[in-house]
Amino acid sequence: MKHVRISSAAIRPDQELAALEGLGGGALASFTGIVRDDGGVTAIELEHYPGMTEASLYRLIEAATARWALLGAVITHRVGIIPLGAPVVVVGAASLHRAEALEATAFLIDRLKTDAPFWKRAHYADGTAQWVEAKASDEVRAERWV
């Protein structure tokens, strides 16, 4: 089970992960990214490259499936305006035992950060907005998986 979804509506982690529960595995690991209050941020806005986004996320799932014995994996990413406290991304992986699901989940979110064509703009309480700069630490984390 490999599933990629881009949503302009709110996402519910439990709903995105439900399909991974019935695959017969003993392990389901997941990561949820949430909009945090980073110096007065009220919302973030996500822009993406339709078509390339879905293909790049699917390629990441294919790479994870080739590397670990997974029963399934999902990536759901929200786009548009996302309010403080709401989920931005949900990544999940299911496997027979925990090690594969845990490692694959870390791989998927680390590589999503550097490989998938999304861009984030932070909106602040005073009405201003600013594009978020890529972090060198994200590159370092993604390189762990090369």
Binding site: H48, Y49, V89, P117, F118, W131, A134
Partner: peptide, 29 residues
């Protein structure tokens, strides 16, 4: 850069590509 929706480096040959995307480093997740 992305050529026909695949990330590429600046020294990549254009070949027969139909679409070039130009953007800042990505910041999803």
């Amino acid at each position: 850069f992305a050529l026909d929706q695949n990330m590429v480096a600046g020294d990549t040959l254009l070949g027969t590509a139909q679409e070039l995307a130009i953007f800042p480093p990505v910041t999803g997740g």
